[in-house]
Write a protein that binds this DNA or RNA. Structure first.
Length: 349
DNA sequence: CTACCATA
DNA sequence: TATGGTAGG
C-alpha cells in the first residue's frame, strides 16, 4: 500500500542504516495498521494458516505486537501506536479495489490448498490480509494493558503519526511506507524489526535488514525538489492510495523529470499532461496530503503494565501459553521500569 | 515475526 | 555461544 513507487527514487546514499542502540531514548510514532498487516502477512504456518485461538479467532497480530514491542522497549525505544480512523470518502474506490484483490487471493489460496500446493498457497494467503474490528480492538487493548500510548487518528494513521513527529511529540514516524514523508514527517524510520535477517520473497535466500532512517530534507535534496508540495505532486504522478494507478506510461524517472522541469501539477496539467484523465482531481489529492484530518486530542503516557490484564487477555481469552506470556511480562516489566530515567531527553537527538 | 529448543 | 529449524495459537 501507500506510495511504494516513491521508494524506487530514493537513493541508498541518504538511507541511514542504524542499530537499535542508536534509536535509544527516542519516541517513535508507529503506524499501527502497517505493523499489524506485517504480522498478518508473516506470522503463519507453512501453508498460510494464521495463528488462532480455540474459538478460531486470529491471534497472529497479537503475538507479533507483543514480542516486537517488548524488543523495542528493551532497547529503550518508546513506541506510540497510531491507529487509523475512518478512511476519507475519497479512499472508497481504493478500499473496494483492495477488498476485491483480497477476495481473489483467498479463493486462490483455498484452491491451491486443496491441490496440496502448500508453499504456493502461502503466497496467496499473504495477500489475503484482512483486519476485523475485533482484531484491531484486541491490539489496542493489549497495548493499553502494556502501558503504552494508543492514539486514534482522525483518518489516516500515517498522517497522524507524521504530525505527531512534526510537532516534536515524537522523534520520528515509523512505517514501512513512505506516506508519512508526504504528510510532513521530518523523519521516517523503516525496518523497525529485531531479527536483522529477512527471507527474500520466493527464494531461499536471506538478507541483512537494519532499521533505516530517512530525513524529509535529505529526500527533497536528493530528488532536487524545492519543497514537500513538489514531493507530493511527484507521488501523485506515481500513484497514491487516492489514485492507485498513477499515470499509465509514466514511471518513477519520467515523473521526477516532469516535476523538476515544470515545477508543479498545475503546470503539468496545463502542459504535457493536458489530456490525461485523473481518477480524482489531483489538486484535491495534494490538499489531502498537505492538510489531512488530524485528531489533536491525544495523550502520550507510558505506564507500568497491567500484568494480570495481559494474562487475562492472552492466556485465558486467546489461549497463549502461560509460561511464554509470563516470560514476556518479566521482560516487559523490567523494560518499562526504565522509562522514567529517559523521559526528558526523548525529543532530541 | 520472534521465541525457543536442538544441535555443534 | 552461535546458528538453524520450527512452533507459536
Amino acid at each position: 500500500m501507500g506510495v511504494t513507487e516513491l521508494g524506487k527514487l530514493i537513493p541508498d546514499s541518504i538511507r541511514k542504516t542504524v542499530d537499535f542502540a542508536q534509536l535509544s531514548n527516542k519516541i517513535i510514532a508507529l503506524d499501527a495498521y502497517n505493523a499489524l498487516y506485517q504480522f498478518l502477512a508473516s506470522i503463519r504456518q507453512p501453508d498460510g494458516t494464521l495463528l488462532m485461538d480455540s474459538r478460531g479467532r486470529v491471534t497472529s497480530h497479537l503475538s507479533g505486537l507483543l514480542y516486537r514491542t517488548i524488543n523495542l522497549l528493551e532497547n529503550r525505544i518508546w513506541p506510540i501506536y497510531v491507529f487509523d480512523g475512518k478512511p476519507p470518502e475519497e479512499k472508497t474506490l481504493e478500499i473496494v479495489r483492495r477488498r476485491r484483490v483480497r477476495e481473489e487471493a483467498m479463493d486462490k489460496w483455498a484452491k491451491l490448498l486443496e491441490e496440496g500446493k502448500k508453499e504456493e498457497a502461502r503466497k496467496y494467503a499473504q495477500r489475503a490480509l484482512f483486519l476485523t474490528d475485533d482484531m484491531v480492538n484486541d491490539a489496542k487493548k493489549l497495548l493499553s494493558l502494556m502501558g503504552l500510548p494508543v492514539v486514534q487518528a482522525a483518518a489516516d494513521g500515517e498522517a497522524q503519526a507524521a504530525l505527531i513527529a512534526k510537532e516534536n511529540k515524537a522523534w520520528a514516524a515509523g512505517s514501512q511506507d513512505y506516506d508519512s514523508l508526504l504528510f510532513g514527517a521530518p523523519r521516517l524510520v523503516r525496518n523497525l524489526t529485531i531479527t536483522g535477517r529477512r527471507k527474500l520473497p520466493n527464494k531461499d535466500e536471506y538478507i541483512e535488514v537494519k532499521p533505516e532512517i530517512l530525513e524529509l530534507n535529505d529526500v527533497l535534496k536528493a530528488l532536487k525538489l524545492r519543497d514537500r508540495t513538489q514531493l507530493i505532486d511527484l507521488a501523485i504522478l506515481l500513484g497514491t492510495d487516492l489514485n492507485p494507478d498513477g499515470i499509465p506510461g509514466i514511471g518513477p524517472q519520467k515523473a521526477l523529470k516532469l516535476i523538476q522541469e515544470f515545477g508543479s501539477l498545475e503546470k503539468l496539467i496545463q502542459g504535457p499532461l493536458k489530456n490525461v484523465q485523473f481518477s480524482m482531481d489531483p489538486l484535491k489529492i495534494r490538499d489531502y496530503f498537505l492538510n489531512p484530518p488530524y485528531n489533536p486530542n491525544y495523550t502520550i503516557e507510558f505506564r507500568q503494565p497491567n500484568e494480570k490484564g495481559i494474562i487475562e487477555l492472552l492466556v485465558y481469552e486467546h489461549d497463549f501459553n502461560e509460561d511464554r506470556v509470563k516470560n514476556a511480562l518479566e521482560r516487559l516489566r523490567k523494560a518499562m521500569s526504565r522509562r522514567r530515567e529517559s523521559t526528558l531527553d526523548s525529543f532530541f537527538g
